[in-house]
């Protein structure tokens, strides 16, 4: 199946600063993929490149097999600081959507607005933050996209509004089987929402993969203080904390840990993400793929 997103050496520069650099990832179709990272890590840049709202400074990106922006009907982009028209009512937004989109699903959009209890006559500027986010999502889903790109990195919804928003999104995933690419800095929700993860830090991809697979391949090792350089081949240290006598490591490995000196534990998703966000970049894109070779 055509991947949801594929990038080779993708980068975007603002002046001399690379907001995203040497990004090589492949996200399979049908996933709800989460981009996570601190503010300024490159999440929104990658989303905007995928949505075709930015041109790459280097490298190549394909969305559902095509150049971003070339098949607008297949992709919907929703920023959660809700790009709505404050002076237009809810009903007017729906009419506008129907005019602009050939595949518009008016019936399901109206049903969703009903279920959410949004007053069709109310102007968008007078809705609460949660309602605005729900309206923007409803407009995105009514396009019947194959891929929904969702930028939540600026979102400031209260917990209840966030839960309702996620429920609307995931019900659409269950009903229509669309793929989702979302950016968030709320690590806590991810395990419920996403099944694929891309961790970004300082404009680079630190790790990417299906969440179950990532959790299965990481272990926390606690034991007597030790130089991580002495670990067996095949155990890659993601993060290390050393006390006077003790070392605590997060390692990535496909093999069982046999050394009896270690107490071996599982790594939760939140710890895993934080380990990659704060650690050294251990999963660099393959060496030899110089930026120049991929310049667009």
């Amino acid at each position: 199946m055509t991947p949801l997103l594929e990038a080779w050496g993708l980068g975007r520069r603002y002046g001399r600063r690379w907001a995203l650099a040497e990004c090589t990832v492949r996200i399979p179709a049908g996933r709800v993929a989460g981009l996570v990272g601190a503010n300024g890590a490159g999440k929104s840049t990658l989303l905007a490149l995928a949505a075709g709202m930015l041109e790459p400074s280097a490298g190549t990106v394909r969305v559902l097999g095509d150049r971003p922006g070339s098949r607008l009907g297949k992709v919907a982009y929703v920023a959660q600081d809700a790009p709505l028209y404050a002076g237009l009512t809810v009903a007017e937004h729906l009419r506008l959507g129907a005019r602009l989109n050939p595949r518009w699903d008016a019936a399901s959009a109206r049903a969703r607005i009903d279920r959410l209890g949004l007053d069709p006559a109310r102007r968008a500027g007078r809705l609460s933050g949660g309602q605005r986010a729900q309206l923007a999502l409803t407009l995105g889903l009514a396009k019947r996209p194959e891929l929904l790109i969702l930028d939540e990195s600026a979102a400031a919804l209260d917990p209840l509004a966030r839960r309702d928003f996620r429920a609307t999104l995931l019900e659409a995933v269950a009903a229509d089987g669309l793929s989702v690419l979302l950016a968030s800095h709320l690590v806590a929700d991810l395990e419920r929402t996403c099944d694929h993860l891309v961790v970004l830090a300082d404009g680079r991809v630190r790790v990417a993969g299906d969440i179950d697979d990532l959790l299965a391949r990481h272990r926390r090792l606690t034991g007597p203080r030790r130089d991580p350089g002495t670990l067996p081949r095949g155990q890659h240290v993601v993060a290390a904390v050393h006390a006077a006598r003790q070392s605590s490591l997060v390692v990535r490995t496909d093999d069982p840990i046999l050394d009896p000196a270690w107490e071996v534990g599982d790594v939760g998703l939140e710890d895993l993400v934080i380990a990659y966000m704060s650690g050294e970049p251990v999963l660099r894109p393959a060496a030899g793929r110089a930026k120049a070779a991929w310049r667009a």
Partner: peptide
């Protein structure tokens, strides 16, 4: 289940 828990359908 998805509607009730706001959880990924694949899960």
């Amino acid at each position: 289940v998805v509607a009730q828990l706001a959880i990924n359908p694949n899960t």
